[in-house]
Design a protein around this nucleic acid. Sequence first.
DNA 1: GTGAAAGCGCTAACAT
DNA 2: ATGTTAGCGCTTTCAC
Lengths: 344, 344
Amino acid sequence: MTDALGSVSLEDVARRAGVSIMTVSRAFRRPDALSEDTLEKVLRAAEALGYLPNQIASGLRSKRSQTVACVIPTISSPVYANVVQGIADAISPEGYSLVLGTSNYAVDEERRVMMSLLAYRPEAVVLAGGDHRPELTRSLARLKAPLVELWELVPKPLDMNVGFSNHAAGAAIVDHLIRMGSRRIAFMTVKVEHARVRARRATYEAAVTKVLNHAPIVIATDLSIEGGRRGLRRLRDRHPDVDGLFCTSDSIAVGAMLKAMELGWSVPDELAIAGFGDLEIGRHVPPGMTTVRVPEYRVGQVAGEMIVGRLLGRPEGARTVDVGFEVVARGSSARAESKRVRRR
Amino acid sequence: MTDALGSVSLEDVARRAGVSIMTVSRAFRRPDALSEDTLEKVLRAAEALGYLPNQIASGLRSKRSQTVACVIPTISSPVYANVVQGIADAISPEGYSLVLGTSNYAVDEERRVMMSLLAYRPEAVVLAGGDHRPELTRSLARLKAPLVELWELVPKPLDMNVGFSNHAAGAAIVDHLIRMGSRRIAFMTVKVEHARVRARRATYEAAVTKVLNHAPIVIATDLSIEGGRRGLRRLRDRHPDVDGLFCTSDSIAVGAMLKAMELGWSVPDELAIAGFGDLEIGRHVPPGMTTVRVPEYRVGQVAGEMIVGRLLGRPEGARTVDVGFEVVARGSSARAESKRVRRR
DNA sequence: GTGAAAGCGCTAACAT
DNA sequence: ATGTTAGCGCTTTCAC
């Protein structure tokens, strides 16, 4: 009978085609190893019965699950959404499917979720960042599957690593603001900082301390436009003397720009602003928002390619890939005479 | 040896604990069926060996893969990202994992991707919308797994259905614009319309034709802020006499509002604007954007609950759930004297 | 080019 | 409360 989809097995097809089940198995995996006649017979029978290969049985016997497990902080962020799309597009042509989990930026949750995905015996594993629970790291080390840590470049990768340097990006932005005339720069960040954000902040602190000779000015707020607005309000109240602002996310920066406009704090003449992430809206908030662009999709794509390369035994390239980033200079940080005049 | 993670089997644990493999199996699945002593022994042995259950073997034998397959148009849209999060959060407490695929809004791709996911024998299936390839529908029908079509309410669900009515939402917005004084309303949409958008458009066309007595005015553009700007430019050129605009997406609506401002087309006094989706930025574009809010996360959550309920054999509730929507009225459609004056 | 036998790691069904 | 037997659907290995 051919009632439930899953009930048609190789054996059913074999019987109908009048061949052994091995022949049917080969018909799907190495069709050129069969005579044309047999192949056609088998394919016809499979078609007629609505045969669908059972990857579970195949995976058990061959120990090849054809899956890649990936745990990211959240799917509700364009950043990771694009990264995931990149991975999926790179591995799916080779027949691999992506099994996804989210950690909500918590290393404990990351461990929990990844451990449960490991029960499906993925052939490769993808993680975000370089901050993981030691128990997880140990399990991952025992499993000899290819492993990619992505998004940021980490000091000591467990295996492969793709991303960009948050330190370099932070330094580039602060440097840009200084070159555009800022002499007192604040940093607006999220309340709970993860490793990525901490790196940008550390670089900011080092730069302002050493180059501009002023103590770091850090405002923590919520990761949203509204958060940016509230943050700017506080900045205006407490540090009306700053003339530059680096926000750790574009959402926050957009809110800051809108609020500055409302308060009559002129951007970029009195306050230069830069964000991070290149959301589309940044281009459209007058006078255009300066930001850092990271090739998100490319990060995922490279990760996928590295994995597939390793799995298919292709000669190995670099284990660490720096995809770089780009400072996109727009109106919000344009060189302003007034700032320089005030300071000198 | 305990080298590769996957190499530790029930048998290894059983040997070490001095029990049969069935006892080890039970220790994980029905711990209360064992004596405390045995349970402890087994758990200790498993811990020592770093045992990790093999869901592939378990799935093959028990025919329960503990996975739910889901194919959505794209992950790069906050809408589906939130929906997916809702599904995942609802099924994961019951031990189910989500296997995800994307169709890029193409029914052919949807079929291809879902077919390949079916090889993993998911216990339930989630699809977006009600528009699918007949071949897929047939395969899905043979498989007796619970199936949810989500996001929009469809006329003839294959099985279960969660979402909202695009017709009702479209009607509500047009009605709102009319009540706020608009008498000539245009519709701005994406170039390639899928079923959801077509429903909103059809409702718009019916409403303006019957209630306002004017021919539909439809502008197609790209799904982006920039697309909205270009669309509004065209609208201004070709139909300067409209006094209301319904955009099929918030991105587009934001672009339209910004461009209107630039052109000196006053919102809402001369032109009322409404979007769809309730992106955060809409709240912050002066004078605030009217939009439709759909409980995205809730859609996914309900879908997940329906699936889990069916899988666990819980008494069945409704097969179709309308989560509704909400017209969020903001400044962009506030009642404007000038419009009414001009028209009367 | 094709087939037979064995077994992947687990659980259902039946003992005891 | 615990063990034994059989077998899920496929692929590996070896034979012809």
